[in-house]
Design a protein around this nucleic acid. Structure first.
Lengths: 245, 245
DNA sequence: GACGCGCCTTGACCCAAATCAAATGACAGG
DNA sequence: CCTGTCATTTGATTTGGGTCAAGGCGCGTC
């Protein structure tokens, strides 16, 4: 289950320039390397349960994880989708606030929490980068609040596809040429938990977008987008695609 | 409209120990005082429009402001409620991402953006505190995502009341003795925008909670809570009241 | 190749909240 | 005191998405 044999060198790390360590100098990386270790999780495995003591923080290296909240009666809402380079955990907090689950096979670069916190106070580059990433996540969360509070089911689906496409593109997971294509990393039920819908509604709306020619499906998970502007229009977003600076 | 005559001394500032400057030493405060100025806004006035160039960042000193997003067709979602000590603006970003509106008369302590950003790189105490505040906001945003995505109208209203009560309590706006009491700082329409509902539904659910004895109304805005546990139960939250550390 | 098991789709029906429409209340100004 | 404005409440009706239920599809296993 755990695998300490890969990526021992930060300099060769695929997320080196996007993760919380992005701004570190080589001497700072050396310090990080001393407190880091890798952990692997299988698809479906829970990384941490909400309320559990957290003895580490860390970054997603490969694979996809989700952050979810669950109510006593079982209603679930996904509050974060973690792609490679995203950060897990909150320095200064001892217990996890959300369930973290691996939706695909997952490799995480973990730092023991206490030494990481110490390093944060001595190494401003880490805190600076973490602030930047947290502000980005806050913006993403607020965009999601608009989706959850005000968008129709069809708009929610279209928005989700564009957001996943955008994030995949920024990670260069997609070949830049050819037709725009997206792999949904989630089951219909997980999408429902993400969008505040039921899995039946997700399925119906995906079918409807397909019937209307907005998307094409190859299998259940693989989508291609013949006309991105059309999809953006269906998402109900401002025409500029939500680009900010 | 603008008033430069109040609170020139940071040491006398009512939000001194909660705002972005909370951790600053007196020499750091001196630096902040050189780049700060106060601005006042009347209830209803817009502080910044989404997309506008931001020449300052700052803290709410007194009063209440809201952060909202608007879709082209007019649908609105509030994505933040700013109480005294809350921070407005994002260092490193040149334009506002949301509309900021004063819902009551408002006084803000503003810092010119560029000097503030410079100060952030030289003064780790500011960046540290901002990170802490941003992480808190992210948690609040995620709690709100659960509300928007999965709660019923009645649960949304009950949750909103408990959250406002909790925030007022943490600011010590309430006398600690006596019956628990909350002043809603928002109109029914603003509550609707906050909760992802229509104003009619907000009104109906408040009436229903009143009829069921969960809350008592004195006028439209003043609520008192005979039994907090009952209200928490109606909110559908975990019984611990969402306390985290 | 038949079975079981996830995952997904589709249909029928229902209900919570939206929409449309009035009426009421609270004030401020003339 | 009357009148206009704005916030709020309440009622009647509609509807988007939830719920319940039945199959379908792909795939690994015996």
């Amino acid at each position: 289950m755990q695998d300490h044999s890969v990526h021992v060198q930060c300099s060769e790390c695929p997320i080196r320039h996007r993760a919380v360590c992005a701004r570190c100098e080589s001497d700072e990386l050396t310090q990080l390397e001393q407190i880091k270790y890798y952990r692997s999780f299988q698809a479906g495995q829970t990384v941490i349960w909400s309320g559990d003591r957290m003895e580490f923080v860390g970054s997603v290296v490969t694979g996809i994880a989700t952050l979810t909240q669950t109510m006593e009666d079982g209603r679930r809402q996904m509050v974060g989708l973690l792609l490679p380079s995203d950060f897990v955990g909150r320095p200064g907090r001892s217990t996890a606030a959300y369930d973290v689950t691996a939706t695909t096979d997952l490799v995480m670069c973990c730092f023991r929490k206490k030494p990481f916190e110490d390093l944060m106070t001595t190494t401003p580059h880490i805190a600076q980068r973490l602030l930047e990433m947290t502000l980005d996540e806050l913006d993403a969360a607020r965009e999601w609040m608009l989706l959850l509070g005000r968008k129709t089911a069809r708009e929610k689906i279209a928005s989700m596809i564009t957001i996943i496409a955008r994030r995949e593109a920024s990670l260069q997971l997609r070949k830049p040429n050819g037709m725009l294509t997206v792999d949904l990393p989630l089951t219909r039920e997980e999408m429902a938990d993400y969008l505040g819908l039921t899995l039946e509604t997700v399925s119906r709306q995906i079918s409807a977008l397909k019937k209307d020619g907005v998307i094409n499906l190859e299998g259940n998970r693989h989508i291609n987008i013949p006309d991105l502007d059309r999809l953006l229009e269906e998402a109900g977003d401002d025409s500029d695609g939500g680009m900010l600076n």
